[in-house]
Write a protein that binds this DNA or RNA. Sequence first.
DNA 1: TTGTAGGCGTTATCAC
DNA 2: GTGATAACGCCTACAA
Lengths: 355, 355
Amino acid sequence: MSEGGRGGVTIVDVARAAQVSTATASRALGGYGRISAATRERILAVADDLGYRPNDLARAVRVGRSSTIGLVVTDLANPFFAQATRAVVDTASALGHEVLIANTGEDAAAERRAVRVFVEKRVCGLVVVPAAGADHDHLFRPDGRPHLPLVLLDRRLPGRSAATVISDDLGAAREAVGLLAGRGHTAIGMIDGNSTVPGVARDAPAGLVSAAADRVEGFLAGLRDAGLEARRDWMLYATAAEPGAAEEAALTLLGSPDRPTAVVANNSDVALAVVMACNRLGLAIGRDVSLIGFDDASWTRAFTPAISVVARPVAGLGEAAVRELAAQIGGRPAASEPIVLPNRLVDRPSAAPRR
Amino acid sequence: MSEGGRGGVTIVDVARAAQVSTATASRALGGYGRISAATRERILAVADDLGYRPNDLARAVRVGRSSTIGLVVTDLANPFFAQATRAVVDTASALGHEVLIANTGEDAAAERRAVRVFVEKRVCGLVVVPAAGADHDHLFRPDGRPHLPLVLLDRRLPGRSAATVISDDLGAAREAVGLLAGRGHTAIGMIDGNSTVPGVARDAPAGLVSAAADRVEGFLAGLRDAGLEARRDWMLYATAAEPGAAEEAALTLLGSPDRPTAVVANNSDVALAVVMACNRLGLAIGRDVSLIGFDDASWTRAFTPAISVVARPVAGLGEAAVRELAAQIGGRPAASEPIVLPNRLVDRPSAAPRR
DNA sequence: TTGTAGGCGTTATCAC
DNA sequence: GTGATAACGCCTACAA
């Protein structure tokens, strides 16, 4: 067995070597239709001997569909998306799908290009993290329905009707503020780190992705719950594009004499920036500044004090997205309401009582 | 324009609508051969109007090759591989290739399965992070040459001849030890976190991947350079599979009264574990214990003191792997010697003089 | 149970 | 410059 020809061995070669027709060979190899056990064994043996490898491209052309899904992500190197990607790949694999992957870097043109290529490769469905602030016409037909089975991951597209899988970031931010307020904090700030406008902004920039906008809204709702006023100078928006922007925002927020005693950091980069800013300013987290971040990065448990976080169901999001997509591919209509997974507030010493 | 039929519109439809033959339509759409500008424009307009999308599967079958490469990784959620994956995807995209991705979780069967599927999908090449301690016959023909263009990423496969892209981890570990020795440390320990045997081992387990083995060897070479003896009880091997193993190793190493004054952590999880163990044991990093880790994780700069690290050229590795693969696909013979990229030792306060 | 033959959507080789 | 026509490798009526 396994002489392993140069890859050019087709089902015709197998059929000829086994002295049967290509139809019979195809039946044996594909494991369908009526065929005698004897000939099937013989054909399989011959195929193995020749090193035959089915050509899935040809099969896909013939049957009109592939088993490949496309995954379009904004930043594969971001730990959140990396973990989600892993879940997507693992789940897809378990469901018998392969995954074509593309990275857009929040660039609309790159996303458009990726989707076009995937469509030409006849993927049977798409999981997309839509790029911030871009138009997404390329995903939809004129009648507003997606060109093909589609699931949006982590970001809603307002005004569009597409299956969407997100976590309850509004509720989590609200809960985080509630926790801080319950410990006596009345001066609570927020730093967003998902903006696409350069540098640090003091007003919510247009084009914030829904996950970020939800956190801002949840923050405001939490303040309202606690009967606190929102202060414009305690809400900062740092771009995700410049590594230094989050730290600049943290220094601005905490460097002022009139600083908040607690901060909600809307992603883990910002949480890290707050830690660094406190180091720089000589402020002690948990004493001078309480902190709750988003995303349960591994380092948050290693700090003294450990950092409280909103643990997002990152693997669950990826898995749910693929399951929803597989269902659509199977013919089920797309989920009309967003699939919302719960977050988990992990209470650690960085969220301390006000002193 | 863009009525966007249901996806069933083929080149035949375009040809018919433009009143030309499929050959002419193909020439116009494919941008090759001799064709008058007028008919080309007309055909392109008609194609756009019909919402024609070329079927890349059919083209691939016809021309006998696809533009897709396969990427097989052991753990997509690991920040190192996530960043490498991003570099692979970005570079491939720039070079006109798409990327099919698979995650093996260090499981040989999963790797075998992934490679088989990718071959059946007729990828034009493979970038593989080979699973630890597995046999990799499925990548090679009986004569020892790869079945198709192949590049190994981050891990050599001893005894096999395949293009390989790695970083100089031996040199980096050696240099790290040299730095510590130069600051007066004579008691230097090491914790590896890439083992596949459960728990914590006190002797180098079999089947350590080359990147890990290189670091161990570099560590020993560094000791020799400094005229220091290697102590068996100061070299621990924690499995990557159990999150707690690295911390257990760190507690074992540093909890003893006869503990080293400096530690080299062979990946960033281990570095974090050392930090946590020091917290737990009441040891101060940079004073009681000096530390140098592998991989420049973002949190290493946020600690006080900041953690010294070996910054690996992670994006460079991914890019180099794809460039080498593309060259092979273009017909160039595979690089016969490993492509070794330099590491960079980032000296921060955690690597302090001995007190 | 097996074989024949046609076609999936492309591209490429011929003629004209 | 353009048009028949034959592949590419596979599946699947339909016929035997």
